[in-house]
Structure formats: structure tokens, C-alpha cells
Design a protein around this nucleic acid. Sequence first.
DNA 1: CAGTAATAGATATGAAGCATAACTATCATG
DNA 2: CATGATAGTTATGCTTCATATCTATTACTG
Lengths: 163, 163
Amino acid sequence: MRTPVSKPAVNHTATHVDDSTLREALGYHMKRSFNHVQADLTRVLKPFELRMLTYTALVLITDNPGLRQSQLAAAMDIERPNLVVIIDELERRDLILRERVPTDRRAYALQPTLAGRQLYEHALKAVRAHEAQLTQGIDEQTRATVIAVLRGIEKRLAGGEAP
Amino acid sequence: MRTPVSKPAVNHTATHVDDSTLREALGYHMKRSFNHVQADLTRVLKPFELRMLTYTALVLITDNPGLRQSQLAAAMDIERPNLVVIIDELERRDLILRERVPTDRRAYALQPTLAGRQLYEHALKAVRAHEAQLTQGIDEQTRATVIAVLRGIEKRLAGGEAP
DNA sequence: CAGTAATAGATATGAAGCATAACTATCATG
DNA sequence: CATGATAGTTATGCTTCATATCTATTACTG
């Protein structure tokens, strides 16, 4: 990131900004914390030349070989057109393959290549290490509670879109 | 280390995509749930013609009248250039004012207008109602725990470098 | 069985959000 | 005063995400 070499003589931002109104909302905390997590994870994935979306796609394809693009888009909660670019990138890097489905020639079955599976292993290891560092000092019970709450929110709000 | 979940060799059911590997990570849950919260909040703010960022700026300016743009950008964790557009929009709608600071003619003191304060009140009410709905069924103790964890993550990752 | 609807994927385009570099006008300090 | 730092702005580019539209297939229906 940015590491300013020249240090400011005096930090004039001594005035504290009151954000207590925003801090009332759980959603605000979610946004703030996730922004940092995302930035951090981006750094973790950088050595593998993966972004969060390409990483997510690679993991899902490797864990679900033969997946179709529409299924993957649904699983990733993104629109089909946006997935095309992601799949293009993974295919161009020979991490996955688009295999024609004999029974439905419109569709592609997505498969990881050997290189894809290897990158999956290495990236996953790094992500798990990052996750461990992220949740250090949080006991397992608390962590499970947080995940349960987040998942509950996700599930409750998931219905609101298109049936 | 978590117990690995067995994955299907081939996916042909097309109904269930296994995302258990991703679900290991707290950050994944944060992203998924926040995406829904954000979409929901966008709908809540729509009647006020506010987006999350314009809402956040309006709240902070109203709660901290006389705030300068650089302070606001720091508080919102965004870069100064991106704040300009947000302030432009709020000013164009006569919700806030850019007042020259006599002691420093480079800076602007941001002030809410009467219309801004009124919109603040109405929007805040709607956001609070949404928040109440979002956290329904979550007891206060659990909610506090989740917020504490999220804030802890935010604080830990905010510094990044050595203190 | 033909004709139409639905589906899988791709293309094009646009809106937000976010970051950096570079510009101006002021201010601070040697 | 000269130099550098700061406040705000402009320009630009990247990433994510949404919509409309196109094609080629497949499924459905009369």
C-alpha cells in the first residue's frame, strides 16, 4: 500500500469525528470491517495473481467439478455476464477448462486443470493462514456465534430478490 | 484445523453447489451477508434519493457541523477525490453548505442546511427501522458480541503496519 | 412435427465505488 | 522570501455489478 516517506510535522487531525449515530447500525460495522478484510485478502491473493472473485470461482469449480456457468453464477450471487469475464481469465491462465456437455450443447462443464488444482491448494493454504490470523483471539464459540448471525441475516434477506 | 468435508466427485444434480470450503472463512460470511444488507439498505434509502455514501456523509456532517472535507474523508475511510463528488451532490441538492473557513482559506467547513437536517431525521428513522428488522430475533447480548468482534477485526486490520 | 418459448452463454454498455497522479491556491516554516 | 506541506479539485483508470440484447441450442405445445 502507501507508505509515506515524509512524515507529517504535526498531525492536525486531532479533532475526533463523532460517528456514534452510524455505529448504532450493525450494517455499518459490517461494511467497515469487511472493507479491511477485503483489502487484506486482496494482498494475500496477490502472489497467486488471484482476485477475490477469481479465487471464489476457482474454489467452487475445484470443489464442484463439472459445474455449469449458470450454476456458478447463482452460487456466487453474481450475474451471468459478469461471470463470463472471470471464467475467461481462469481459462486463459489454463487453470480451468470449458468442456462441452454432450447432452446439452449450449452448456459448458467447468473443470479445473492440474495447474488449477495446484493453485487452489496453495491459495487455500494462504487464505486459511490469513483467516487464522484474522480470528486470533476469538474463541471458537464466539466465532461460531458471529457466523450464525451473519448467515441468519444472509438467509433472511436472500428471499427479497427474485423468486 | 477443521474437519474436511467430503465433496461429490461430479455434480449432476444441479441443485446444490458445495461452498463449504468458502464457508470456513468468516470473511466469506461477511461478504455474503453484507451484500444483502447493502442491497436492502439501498432500497430503504431510495425514497430519500440517498445512497449509502451520501447518507453516511450527511449523517457525519450533521453530527459534526463544521467538519472539513479531509476529516470527513478520513472518517469515511475514502480518498479525498472521491468525497468531492459526494459533497458536490449533497450541496447541489441544498442539503449541506460549503462555508469558507476564515482562518484557513483553503478549507471548507461543511454545514447541514435545514433541509439537510430534516432529511437526516427522516432517513435515520427509516434506517433505524430497517436495522430493527434486520436484527430481529437476535438478542442484545449476541448483537453486542457480533459488533465487538467486527470492531475488533476492523481495529486490528486498520493499523496494518507496526504502531 | 412445426412454431414458439425458455435456457446457456456471450457481448456491449453504463453506473458506482475506489485509487493514484497531478494541478491550484493557500498556509507554514526555515 | 523560498520551499515545502496541506485543502480541495480534476482527470483517469480499474474493479465490481446490473441491464439489455444477441446467438445457438433445447424444451414445450398446439
